[in-house]
Nucleic acid binder design. Structure first.
Length: 489
RNA sequence: CGGGGUGUAGCGCAGUCUGGUAGCGCGUCUGCCUUGGGCGCAGAAGGUCGUCGGUUCGAAUCCGGCCACCCCGACCA
């Protein structure tokens, strides 16, 4: 007879998350579910984003949208269905996206003939260019600086919650310019915006740089990215910005008349970040107790937990708690009081740590006696007694410190796992160790060989990485400078 | 699409080898009790055992087909 009570006696074992060291993906999946961020849906690879997860996205949206407005962009909206024929106009674009688009084959109760079908947008360059063609007449109409908040769909082979889902939410910027220089400037400007957002808000350090030929966006002249390192030392592309040149303009006849009266194709850019950023956030900061979110993006800054044996005690504490919460709100913090009497404090501590609330104030009769509260900080899990009058100020300080420290910790981690490698053997030995700065002869063949044999891909050529000549670690041929290799999501 | 694995209660699983009344833990609900790190006690609800077929007096269990999902690769924000 098998032991049916194997789990008896270790009752709370199944409440604990798997640890990061044990199995990083399992830890990640469990965390996403248990922190109530997202669920799998019935459609393969699609996910349901729950309020706790969506609140993070809303905060991201708010900040990013402000940054886009500050750089002169306006929001607009374009259709979710794109005529198949649009997608087909840009050769590289359709070739690369065809395997992952969902196609509408029936509408109005009838099958659609081939050639009159629609695809569900995997990205909107084509349909937006159709509009741009109508909007642009003269050089006076330029630049056009548009952003769209939307959902897109890509039938990926291997979905992962937030990182790669069949349907995902994102913003896609699309711009038209009179000159190549203007378009390049825009591409790099928006890359800077992404860098700033990642580092200052997400507390995720990123490498800003240029993608290789083979890693470029289909249809782009140049692609740039920001690359982050997760806690398992794998790389995650957190945002991309593309200089599209005149490729789409030529396919859609997006032209303007110059001052000199000549017809010219516009120069374009596109750039985007998605709900993948939520995955990046989770995998950068969270620990074995659950989610950690930097204060600038956290749905909740503080939860006040009421402790007390008797109803009288609790009533007294509760009054103080709500007063404290009101003061915190006045100071601009997102705070709530948990006065649920059906659950014990221990349960609540564990629960809110799991869900990523930045700080916790424990308030009970013993504290009131001493005119204090206990402030617990999520990332370090330190508990500090604070005089009641000082709690609001201390909360503000703690949140600032947390924002700073999370970034520093992530940056130290990344730097500690970034290595210069100078030979094939070294590249191989360090394949799982993080970011590898290596010389590469610049050919797609060598790039592919490294990918096939070692599982390493080029991430980007960081602008900050000094380019000095050397020899390729794979072929011994000359190299213009080092590039970042890593295992990637 | 290649390689591996799993489908039994909301979740996690045992039972399958050796066929014989559907089980355990968590969660949920009710009542009492409890509150400084995932409380306690008592009771209750909840299942066409992924699906279709075969063998058998009898199938979660044996045989065959199908389907779905997960993990590891190739693709990708």
């Amino acid at each position: 007879m098998t032991d049916q009570t194997a789990s008896a006696g270790k009752k709370h074992d199944n409440l604990k998350l798997p640890t990061r060291a044990e199995n990083f993906s399992e830890w990640y999946n469990e965390l996403v579910h248990r922190a109530k961020l997202a669920d799998h849906s019935d459609v393969r690879g699609s996910m349901v984003i729950r309020p706790n997860g969506y609140a993070i996205w809303e905060n991201m949206q708010r900040v990013l949208d402000g940054m886009f407005k500050d750089t002169g962009h306006q929001n607009a909206y374009f259709p979710v269905l794109i005529p198949e024929s649009y997608l087909a106009k840009e050769k590289k674009h359709v070739a690369d996206f065809a395997p992952q688009v969902a196609v509408v084959t029936h509408a109005g109760g009838k099958p659609l003939p081939e050639g009159e079908r629609f695809v569900i947008r995997p990205t909107s360059e084509t349909i937006i260019n159709r509009s741009f063609t109508n909007w642009v007449q003269s050089y006076r109409d330029l630049p056009i600086l548009i952003n769209q908040w939307a959902n897109v769909m890509r039938w990926e082979m291997r979905p992962r919650l937030f990182l790669r889902t069949t349907e995902f939410l994102w913003q896609e910027g699309h711009t038209c310019h009179a000159t190549e220089a203007d378009a390049t400037e825009e591409t790099l400007k928006m890359l800077d915006v992404y860098e700033r957002f990642a580092e200052d808000y997400m507390a995720v350090p990123v490498l800003k740089g240029q993608k290789t030929e083979s890693e470029k966006f289909p249809g782009a002249v140049n692609t740039y990215s920001i690359e982050a390192m997760m806690q398992d030392k794998r790389a995650l592309q957190a945002g991309t910005s593309h200089m599209l040149g005149q490729n789409f303009a030529k396919m859609f006849d997006t032209m303007y008349q110059s001052k000199e009266g000549k017809k010219e194709y516009v120069w374009q850019t596109s750039w985007g970040v998605s709900t993948r950023l939520i995955g990046a956030l989770i995998m950068s900061h969270s620990d074995d107790a659950g989610l950690i979110v930097p204060p600038k993006l956290a749905p909740h800054h503080c939860v006040i937990i009421i402790i007390g044996k008797t109803p009288e005690e609790r009533a007294k504490v509760k009054e103080k708690a709500f007063a404290l919460a009101a003061d915190m709100k006045k100071a601009g913090h997102r705070v709530f009081v948990d006065d649920d009497e059906t659950k014990g404090p221990g349960f609540k501590y564990a629960e809110y740590e799991l869900r990523g609330v930045c700080t916790r104030v424990e308030l009970g009769p013993k504290d009131l006696e001493k005119n204090q509260a206990v402030l617990a900080r999520r990332d370090t899990r330190e508990k500090t007694p604070v005089q009641l009058e000082a709690v609001v100020a201390k909360l503000g300080e703690t949140l600032e410190a947390m924002q700073r420290d999370l970034f520093q910790k992530a940056k130290s981690f990344r730097d500690a796992h970034t290595f210069e490698v100078n030979s094939w053997d070294e590249l191989k030995a360090r394949a799982d160790d993080g970011f590898l700065l290596a010389h590469w002869d610049g050919t797609p063949e060598t790039e592919k060989r490294i990918k096939d044999e070692l599982g390493l891909t080029t991430r980007n050529r960081p602008f900050t990485l000094k380019q000095e000549p050397g020899v390729c670690v794979a072929t011994g041929k000359p190299s213009a400078g080092r590039i970042v290799f890593a295992k990637a999501y």
